[in-house]
Design a protein around this nucleic acid. Structure first.
Length: 593
RNA sequence: GCCGAUGUAGCUCAGUUGGUCAGAGCAGCUGAUUUGUAAUCAGCAGGUCGGGGGUUCGAAUCCGUCCAUCGGCUCCA
């Protein structure tokens, strides 16, 4: 007798091994039609796999991540099958499901490339194969046999993957004539995949390693219904319309110039106004929260960055030192504001009573991002951080975190980012070798963050091994109007710089102590934030931010004088107003404004 | 930086196999119209077809190269 426990606690009993699909059928035929995968004791399984022991299960439909995952993962196999048929001799890397769809990394035969024009052919082949309703069959394979299979196919990528796997854990999935190394889970058959779209093709290094061969990555997405694909394509169109690069140009907010250099945004008058209003808004809040504005130059002696450690870690890949007429004198463009702020901290002695000290600056920094990585305002080589550094005592960490979070919430609220989550990035759970600072301090600060997040009742996820080498951090992700995730604000603890700059304060015990430093930027950078804001609002900014709050449209020249009176009236109330006194019809004026 | 794609007027795009192919619409300028809610009329001006090479009698069109942009990869203090 096998006992199957459902999520609601009810129990079904079976006399012999039973598949997830059978359980679904027993619950309701409708469910059986929609179910895609099953979680059996925390492990996601195929529906057709037999459950032989007492288990608790959960069935997944399209709406569950697990259901989509199985669907798209199976689609990746389907695409691989199509590609293998179309490009004999093709070698396969990995083909996972991703947030929106799936991809497969392939090594094409000599001289072959895949371009956009091949997409319809791939889609057609996939559809043909899908209609055969081939079953996805799971089989456990001994390591030697798996090796043998891929050695014969001369697929060094799969061989490498198998090498890293333990004997006894290796499974193959086969549908139609296609067999793939895979741990699953998969759909029952290919027939469920009704709507198919190949989205793009790109190069991707094998295992993300720049020194290894670049494979061809083919991206696609599939749906159980044609209508869902159409809706998705509409969403993509909408995202295209909201592209901040397009809207930024149309609204004359910012521009780029090849003569100035790539990745170096030029803020046009309207964009500069918008940004200034955001900055003033934040300045006001920061003042209320005990911040002091400071201003530092855009360059610093190389030694400053040697001291901070940035030179050693990033020097090679950064803008190179600026030489001066003086022999051996070198300056670096600042890639961060913190070293300057550390020096500001050091100008005078601090008592424990002075802390926390909060220095804020809209500091423009320069980082030499790789050319292929530049993207509109979201990825640039010169940008302005809404930066601040908080120097505090270890016992003040939690409170300071909570205060910074308050600022972040004020901003998100004011700008209508309703849906956001936080990611707490902590050390690797066991291997602490790469981190600077004592275990004791790390534990303190990690706990401080976790407690702060809990006390603020925040939606959050914890990620291990995502902390910086110098301290744990808390990042904020917002979902925009189209449901896309963006990482915005960040709060980071830093034990490294106070050490390197030998920062201290005098404690109540009359001894010198090391302060803890917090880096924080609620917007992240002005450039990135404005980009996200544009895409979130489609360029229709809240009234308090928008460059033109009102436009007066005189019906003819006769009324221009009156229009000016109205203009003065509105301007007196600080309402940003323009007159459209062009010699145009009123309909056109309305259209244009 | 790497892979792939793209690059024609400020913007959006035509330009078939190399031979009046340098075009259109919008925007701009000039003039007319003096207007009541999504395109008023007429005219003008705009481009070494991304740059610089090569092939050819002849290149926007073909080939290599550089630059930039786009989609990814990698990285992100």
């Amino acid at each position: 007798m096998i006992k199957i426990t459902l999520p609601d606690g009810s129990i079904k009993e079976y006399n012999e091994a039973v598949s997830g699909y059978q359980i679904a059928v027993d619950i309701s035929p409708r469910l059986a039609k929609e179910v895609l995968s099953i979680t059996v004791n925390e492990e996601v399984w195929d529906l057709q796999r037999l459950i032989t022991n007492d288990s608790s299960i959960k069935l997944h439909k399209w709406d569950d991540e697990e259901g989509k995952h199985a669907f798209w993962h199976s689609s990746a196999h389907l695409m691989a099958e199509a590609l293998e048929a179309m490009y004999p001799g093709i070698k396969l890397g990995i083909g996972p499901s991703i947030e929106n769809g799936f991809y497969y990394d392939v090594d094409l035969p000599e001289g072959k490339v895949i371009t956009d024009s091949d997409f319809p052919k791939i889609e057609a082949k996939m559809k043909e194969l899908a209609q055969q309703k081939n079953e996805y069959n799971r089989s456990e394979v001994p390591k030697a046999e798996a090796m043998d299979f891929y050695s014969k196919k001369d697929d060094e990528y799969k061989v490498e993957l198998i090498n890293d796997l333990e004997d006894g854990t290796i499974t193959f999935y086969k549908q139609g004539n296609f067999t793939d190394l895979c741990k699953g889970p998969h759909l029952q058959n290919t027939g469920l995949i009704k709507a198919i779209k190949i989205l793009s093709v790109a190069g991707a290094y094998w295992r993300g390693d720049e020194t290894r061969k670049q494979l061809t990555r083919v991206y696609g997405i599939t749906f159980p219904k044609q209508k869902m694909l159409e809706e998705y394509l509409v969403l993509l169109e909408e995202a295209k319309k909201r592209d901040h690069r397009k809207i930024g140009r149309e609204l004359e907010l910012f521009a780029f110039s090849q003569r100035v250099g790539q990745g170096l945004p030029l803020w046009l008058p309207k964009g500069a106004q918008l940004r200034e209003r955001l900055e003033n808004f934040l300045k006001k809040i920061q003042k209320q929260h005990g911040y002091q504005q400071v201003i530092a130059p855009h360059i610093g002696l190389k030694d400053l960055w040697v001291t901070s450690g940035h030179y050693e870690k990033y020097g090679k890949d950064s803008f190179q030192p600026i030489n001066t007429p003086a022999e051996g004198e070198e300056f670096l463009l600042k890639p961060m504001n913190c070293p300057h702020h550390c020096e500001i901290y050091k100008v005078k002695q601090h008592s424990y009573k002075d802390l926390p000290i909060r220095y804020a600056e809209f500091g423009t920094v320069y980082r030499y991002e790789q050319s292929g990585e530049l993207h509109g305002l979201t990825r640039v080589r010169g940008f302005t951080q809404d930066d601040a550094h908080i120097f505090c005592r270890p016992d003040q960490l939690k409170d300071e975190f909570k205060k910074v979070m308050d600022i972040v919430f004020i901003i998100f609220n004011a700008l209508d980012f309703k849906d956001f989550t936080a990611q707490v990035s902590l050390r690797h759970q066991t291997d602490h070798s790469k981190y600077i600072g004592s275990d004791e301090n790390w534990e303190k600060s990690e706990n401080a963050i976790l407690e702060a997040v809990k006390e603020k009742d925040l939606n959050y996820v914890v990620e291990y091994d995502e902390a910086a080498f110098y301290g744990p951090k808390l990042d904020f992700m917002v979902k925009d109007a189209l449901g896309r995730q963006w990482q915005l604000g960040t709060i980071q603890v830093d034990y490294n710089l106070p050490e390197r700059f030998d920062l201290e304060y005098v404690g109540s015990d009359n001894q010198k102590h090391r302060p803890v430093m917090i880096h924080r930027a609620p917007f992240g950078s002005m450039e990135r934030f404005v980009a996200v804001l544009i895409e979130h609002t489609a360029g229709k900014f809240p009234l308090w931010l928008t460059p033109e709050q009102a436009v007066i449209l005189p019906i003819s020249e006769k009324y221009n004088d009156y229009a000016k009176k109205v203009l003065n009236f509105l301007n007196n109330y600080d309402i940003r107003t323009l007159i459209d006194d062009r010699n145009e019809k009123i309909g056109k004026k309305i259209r244009d404004n």
